[in-house]
Simulated scan of single mutants.
Amino acid sequence: MKIEIFSDILCPWCYIGKQRLRSALARFPYRDQVEISFSSFELDPSLPADSQETIEERTARSTGRSAQEVSAMLTYVTELARQEGLNYHLEGIRLVNSRTAHRLVHLASRQKKQEAMQDRLWTAFLSEHRSISDPTTLLELAVEVGLDPDEVQAVLDSDAYMDEVNADKQRALLLGITGVPFFVIDEKYGISGAQTSEVFLKVLETAWAETHPSTGLELASEAEGTCEGGSCPL
Rank of each mutant, 00 (worst) to 15 (best):
L43H: 06
L43A: 04
L43E: 04
L43P: 00
D44V: 09
P45S: 13
P45Q: 14
S46D: 12
S46W: 12
S46Y: 09
S46Q: 15
L47C: 07
L47P: 06
A49D: 11
A49C: 09
A49V: 11
A49N: 11
D50Y: 13
D50G: 13
D50V: 04
D50N: 15
S51M: 08
Q52D: 13
Q52R: 14
E53F: 08
E53S: 14
E53I: 10
T54F: 10
T54E: 12
I55C: 01
I55Q: 05
I55S: 03
I55G: 01
I55D: 02
I55N: 02
E56L: 01
E56D: 06
E56K: 00
E57A: 15
R58P: 00
T59M: 09
A60P: 00
A60H: 01
A60F: 00
R61W: 05
T63I: 08
T63N: 11
G64K: 09
G64S: 08
G64C: 07
G64H: 07
R65T: 09
R65V: 04
A67T: 11
E69P: 01
S71T: 11
S71C: 04
S71I: 03
S71D: 10
S71Q: 09
S71N: 10
A72Y: 00
A72P: 00
M73N: 07
M73V: 03
M73K: 04
M73S: 07
L74V: 02
L74I: 03
T75I: 02
T75L: 13
T75A: 15
Y76K: 12
Y76H: 13
Y76E: 07
Y76C: 01
Y76P: 00
V77M: 06
V77R: 01
V77Y: 01
V77F: 02
V77L: 02
T78L: 05
T78K: 08
E79I: 02
L80S: 08
A81F: 02
A81W: 01
A81Y: 02
R82C: 03
R82W: 01
R82E: 09
R82F: 01
Q83V: 00
Q83S: 08
E84D: 12
G85L: 05
L86Q: 07
L86K: 03
L86E: 09
N87I: 12
N87E: 14
Y88V: 01
Y88R: 04
H89M: 07
L90K: 06
L90W: 04
L90Q: 09
L90H: 06
E91I: 05
E91N: 12
